[in-house]
Simulated assay, not measured.
Amino acid sequence: MKRTFGIVIILSTLFITALSGCNEISSTPQLVSKAEGVFSESLAHDESSEAKEAKTEFYIGETAELDKVQTTLIDVTESTGSEYNQPNEGNVFVLCEFEICNNSDTEIAVSSMLSFEAYCDDYTCSGSFSALLEKGDKNQLDGTVAAGKKFTGVVGYEVPEDWKELEIRYTPDYWNGNDIVFIANK
């Protein structure tokens, strides 16, 4: 009973912190830089300045900026689990590593449960605590990032082993309603 109460308190605190978010509002994410990713081979996108301003999807290695917060999907890796932690039959764990650089004047909250939603081949998929057990020495993507600081962490999902595309929507500021969409292709 005490454990359940503790979890409720932690989740409530994370929720309230996530809602406080950034105060500045920007209309759309902007492309900051571009690099080739491990899973994504579809990086042949238009590089014109007009395309950068209107860009709505970002791929592995690309950095999006929204409200002075830069977010990069660094890497996407698959795992079949370990001896005592395995995905359901026909599934794999997918670990998505992000770097968040807070260039704003205020601290921001990042919650893998509240700030991220994902779709695998257009079907919704929830974050997986089992997948996070396979993150190794990497951080889970939950916490706060002080102004001028960076944070690197992992969110995990359990998806069918024959998945083709994973779409991850990151909402840095819940009240603002703007998302940054990252795409990973197998």
Rank of each mutant, 00 (worst) to 15 (best):
N85F: 01
T72K: 08
K138G: 00
I74F: 09
W175N: 06
F182Q: 01
S112R: 14
G153K: 03
L11G: 15
S27L: 12
E62Q: 07
E99Y: 12
V145E: 01
F116H: 01
G90I: 06
N88W: 02
E65M: 03
H45R: 04
I7E: 09
L132T: 15
L166F: 01
L141C: 09
E24L: 04
F5H: 11
G136W: 13
G153P: 07
S130Y: 03
F129V: 12
N176P: 04
S104N: 10
A131V: 03
N102C: 07
L132F: 03
A18H: 13
S48E: 11
S115R: 15
L141H: 10
N178G: 07
G148C: 07
R169V: 11
W175P: 05
F151P: 03
K55Q: 14
S27W: 10
C125S: 00
T63L: 00
E57K: 10
N91E: 04
C101I: 14
V110T: 09
G81A: 02
V32C: 02
I60K: 13
D173R: 02
N23C: 09
F98P: 05
K135Q: 05
E97D: 11
N88D: 08
G136K: 06
I16V: 15
V69P: 01
C101Q: 10
F93K: 09
T124C: 12
T4D: 13
E134T: 05
A147K: 06
A131W: 00
A109L: 04
S12W: 14
E97G: 08
V8Y: 14
K52Y: 05
E117H: 10
V92D: 08
Y170T: 07
E83R: 05
E99S: 11
P29T: 01
Y119H: 04
S128W: 07
I25Q: 11
F5Y: 11
N103A: 14
F151L: 13
N85S: 00
G37E: 00
E117W: 13
S12K: 00
L14F: 14
I7T: 06
S82F: 00
A35D: 03
V154I: 08
S26P: 02
K186L: 01
K164C: 05
V92N: 06
D173L: 08
F39D: 10
T124G: 14
S40L: 06
E89R: 09
N176F: 09
L132C: 14
